[in-house]
Amino acid sequence: MEKASAGMWRKIDTRYNLIGSECEKCKTLYFPPRIICRICGRDTKMRSRKLSGNGKVYSFTTIRVPSDTFKESAPYTVGVIELEEGPKVEGHVVENGKKVAIGSKVKTVFRKMYVDGDEGLIHYHFKFETI
């Protein structure tokens, strides 16, 4: 339980607000955030950068045979979303009655991702929905 709490706590900004990181030198954006730039290595500093959450579907699939964690969610759609700032982000795409297709425009919504059993933590997370 302690491990689950610490892991969740570290990711709250990333999960709630799409906080990525930006290299101060080459301006490359990363999501999830990186502490070292892939291009500039240690010869730079990284700073936090909030991403808009707006983007388009780069690829997607529908999961019909879920892991135990997501058994109540199935079937559900997972997409690779190309954000307007550049980074590609994986995320669940919620059902809103509109067909998901490559190129569909999306925005983020705030939802429960999963819960740790009957007594554990509730894990909130951004998801995407088509607009």
């Binding site: 109540e72 919620v94 059902e95 705030f110 939802r111 429960k112 909130y124 998801k127």
Partner: peptide, 15 residues
């Protein structure tokens, strides 16, 4: 929805 609760609704309204 299965992934909505009073907290997610509050966040959407708050934003």
């Amino acid at each position: 929805a299965f992934d909505e609760d009073a907290a997610t609704i509050a966040v959407e309204a708050a934003r």
